[in-house]
Design a protein around this nucleic acid. Structure first.
Lengths: 158, 158
DNA sequence: CTTCCAACATTGGTGAAGCCAACGATATCT
DNA sequence: AGATATCGTTGGCTTCACCAATGTTGGAAG
């Protein structure tokens, strides 16, 4: 009684069509690759995603409280604490109490922090290029514009 | 001696321009919102991302081993184990030893699993719509196409 | 002035997701 | 037969997002 071998096995590395067409899957996959590239590249510089976000905010807006930093970098207050601890341990930022409001800490970017930020900014440029390698310049701008609208739609809702 | 109040404080919810222009940030933020919507919507159906991926693969390709499932859904073998445990506990899949290769398990989609997949597929369609709400139909296709090229570039490298 | 509420920094914990190392059992190749 | 590879499983690690509780402080209402 010979058994009929029905080979219904998926060919390896074949993504189900149910998935590979959905935007949320594509965005998620693209973000995954971007995150992986960024993590590796930043790890080589002794940093991680949160660090860059915070340093960039400090460089652009100047000294700020932790709560404010958390709001404009979209990082939870509790996670801001941990990230700033790490940055402070490396001398990249300084934490000093606000004399005008003793609940707040004033976070200041140190010169070393500014240097480190420049370093990370250069790395980030390479990361963009690696991530969007197959896209031409106008295509990259197109993608950026479309994504910006999507993100704006979901962040603008108080 | 009046103190000059230098207001260098960031306006809340203002994203640093260093970030809001970079594609990796935008992709990451878009993915975050998409992931949040998907997680909430799927949680209401008692599922999570991994479950849909696995069920979809099983529905499209038929019964398969865990390693194969992991490869074509981009889920680590060890995570496949946990996710399949959860699916099996709900009777959505069945795990049986492969008689031809006793290292393998053959994972089969049960009728209940197929029903659940249909339910999740409907939910996923709503998720796409919620995520890409501000975009027109041709714009969504444009975005999908651009992302597909980016993802393909990073997944195609043996 | 007191009372009450809101904001702040901090601690601690939860969960999804991705990744890696190791192990025993089994298949396959040499 | 022995070396090598695959498979399922366990356990652990990291990033990231989020939430609850606490004590301190500011500011507004009574």
């Amino acid at each position: 009684m010979p058994t009929v071998r029905l080979r219904a096995m998926p060919v390896d590395d074949t993504t189900p069509t149910r998935l590979k067409g959905t935007p949320s899957w594509l965005i998620g996959q693209a973000a995954m690759h971007g995150h992986r590239i960024l993590t590796e590249r930043f790890a080589a510089a002794g940093a991680r995603g949160y660090h860059y976000r915070l340093l960039a905010a400090l460089q652009e807006f100047g000294p700020a409280s932790q709560a404010t930093l958390g709001r404009c970098t979209a990082i939870d207050r509790s996670d801001v604490v941990a990230a700033l601890n790490e940055l402070a341990a490396k001398g990249l930022i300084e934490r000093s109490p606000d004399p005008d409001d003793r609940r707040r800490n004033i976070i200041t970017l140190t010169p070393a922090g500014a240097d480190h930020l420049d370093h990370l900014t250069a790395a980030l440029a390479e990361i963009q290029d690696a991530l969007l390698a197959p896209l031409s310049a106008p295509e990259r701008e197109q993608l950026t514009h479309l994504l910006a609208r999507v993100v704006a739609h979901h962040t603008t809702r108080p």
